[in-house]
Design a protein around this nucleic acid. Structure first.
Lengths: 196, 196
DNA sequence: GTCTATAACATGATAGAC
DNA sequence: GTCTATCATGTTATAGAC
């Protein structure tokens, strides 16, 4: 409270460094010494903030999923209930991609290193992941009342695959903007590549 | 030549074991002892077949990409040049997914563990990957002559993301068949979820 | 072609000083 | 809250017998 500067505590610096390295090298490919080095401390000091490497990874993943959930909820509140289906889809696609690309590596870690993580780690993160995916399922059931639920979940999985894979090739500082990417993905999802 | 039984040589058994473990645990998360154990030999013996762990990984990835390329070429030859655009797309989507799910873990390794692999490994596999992606780019340029090339590459990346992510959730032995999945992805790609 | 044995090093984790 | 020092173990890789 004393200063306006964003005093980044030691714990946060460890989390930041860990998230970035986990994204680039995966869970097993990242060492505590690397994380400590990037956080400006020594490896042993990490254990003052986290009980184990696994616990650190879980903290990163859960932080990331909270960002995703917040982005989804904010978008849902901003959209008028009378908005067109296309606006809802584009808005939530944009929220998801923004969370991946604009909120640091926490959300990206979820996309790139969840699958290869030890089972013990995955099981501790599954609840938040499920809750996020459930929000999308419910959104789709509202937007597409005529479709059957099974097809909707399949379409959602296909959309998620397309969105999350962008973490591996999209460059937010390149020619294509995040807005343009969101619009393209949402339109391809709704109307396909053969639209008008 | 003496027997009909598929005599699986030591080298092939090492490759099979490595591919399966790399898929499940990633490159760094898999040890040579695990690979050797699953192949029925001791860790040191692996070095009779491969110079290093990295060389073994490169061999797995390149084997996988050859399967993908073969699947693409076979499909291209089977399709009549007069076939409808939708048939071409569905056929090649089916070929890609078949390679991922029906030809062992070699192709899946490409999808799940390429991104997190050491840069030195990735650079040795990039040529075959690029050549495969180029086949898709050329296919799209033929199928959609009116669209501009930049948009087509973007749409291909989105489609690839959707297809490759299925490796993380699709169960070929479940209720949904590979044919149904291919048809759904191809139709969503061409016409979107709002089709008829 | 596979084994045993081992070198050389990296890793996650702990204990105690400051 | 961070340090130094260290433990116990796991890791890739090598050398030489069979």
């Amino acid at each position: 409270m004393e200063a306006m500067e964003e005093e980044v505590g030691g714990r946060r610096r460890v989390l930041d460094a860990a998230a970035e390295l986990f994204v680039r090298q995966g869970y097993s490919g990242t060492t505590l010494r690397q994380i400590a080095s990037e956080a400006g401390i020594k490896a042993g000091s990490i254990y003052h903030h986290f009980d184990s490497k696994e616990a650190l990874f879980v903290a990163v993943l859960n932080d990331g999923m909270l960002v995703m959930t917040d982005a989804f909820d904010n978008t849902a509140h901003e959209l008028a209930s009378t908005a067109a289906v296309a606006d809802h889809v584009r808005g939530h696609v944009h929220a998801h991609l923004s969370a991946v690309f604009e909120n640091g590596p926490y959300t990206t870690a979820h996309v790139t290193s969840f699958f290869g993580a030890p089972a013990e780690v995955r099981s501790q993160v599954v609840p938040l992941r499920d809750s996020y995916e459930q929000k999308w399922n419910e959104l789709f059931e509202q937007l597409f009342p005529v479709a059957n639920v099974k097809d909707l979940r399949l379409h959602r999985l296909i959309l998620f695959g397309a969105m999350n894979a962008t973490a591996e090739w999209f460059d937010p500082s390149g020619n294509l903007s995040l807005d343009q990417l969101s619009t393209t993905i949402a339109r391809q999802f709704l109307h396909g590549v053969l639209h008008d």
